[in-house]
Each structure stands twice: as structure tokens, then as C-alpha cells.
Amino acid sequence: MHAPTRDEYVEFVTTRLPALRRLAYGLCGDWHRADDLVQATLTKSYVKWTTVRASADIDSYVRAILVKSFLSERRTAWSRVHLFGAAPEAAAPEAGSVEDRTVLDTALDQLPRRQRAVVVLRYLCDMSVAEVAEALGCSSGTVKSQASDGLAALRRHLGTLAYPARGGSA
């Protein structure tokens, strides 16, 4: 890769690293695994950079690489490690506190892997139903029902864990 192109790659990924790390954490719920996913994404993006930079939406491309890496994670040692064997005891945390974040993380951990991916891609990455369906190889109806069920499960888990009510009455 030529030096200007390498510089372009470095400049791009440097600005996107926080968002990629946030997405990776949303998918796997562990910072170390998230960093492994980001590292794999950085490498794959670098290898494909000529194609990436020519694409209409570079962010989508790189994000999709990360998601694919997550869904194929079983091939890595991490997939055999259960980092959270049991949910923490229920607490009544204050919104925005460290404990509050743990509650949300724990609730996300309760979701099946692909359901979690649907929820995170829809509501953290703002991907459309069609984009999520394509990324996961399922029908749009499945994405809709999974997103709905995922939200329902999140509400249920958050309620169980005494998550503070948000938004009041709509």
C-alpha cells in the first residue's frame, strides 16, 4: 500500500475507533473481546482498504466487517469462554451511574446472540431492517420480530434488575 493511502487508512480508523469499540462492546459485552473484534476489523479493513475507500459508505463497510467478525467469533478461543456465568444480584442503581451501565450490560447478556445483534444493529447503529436482514441472512420479518422480542426481553430483564423507568408516560 502506498504511503498516502496508508495515511488515509490511519486517519480514517483513528477517528472511528471509539465508535467501533462501542459497537463491539454492544455486541459482545466485554471490553477485551471488543478490542479483539476491533483488532480483527482493523486488519481486515486494511487488507480491503482499496475497496473500502471506493465504497459509497465507508462507515457501513467497516461496521459490517466488525459484525461479520462477531458472528464468526466461534472460531476464536474467546467463543469458548463464558465471562458472565450468572447475572449480578439485583440492585437499584441511579441512572447514569456505573451500576446502571452494568444492569444494561447484564440485560443484553441475557439475549440470544443473534437477537442481541439485531437489537444492537437496529438501535445502536441505526441500521435499517433491510440492512440488518441482509447482514444476518434472514427475512425482514424475522428482523422485525427479533427486534421487538429483543426489546421486550430487555424491558423484562431490566425490570427484574430494578432498572429505573425511563421517559415516563409516552
Binding site: 462501542r22 462492546y25 454492544g26 441512572a95 447514569g96 446502571d100 451501565r101 444494561l104 443484553l108 437489537v119 444492537v120 437496529r122 438501535y123 445502536l124 427486534a147 426489546l151 430487555l154 424491558r155 431490566l158 425511563r166 421517559g167 409516552a170
Partner: peptide
């Protein structure tokens, strides 16, 4: 959509 965004807002 609104509910989902709010639920994941903290993240």
C-alpha cells in the same frame, strides 16, 4: 424504534 433507542441510549 423510539423505545429501542431509549433503551440503548446509555450505551
Amino acid at each position: 424504534d423510539r423505545d429501542g433507542v431509549l433503551l440503548l441510549n446509555e450505551l
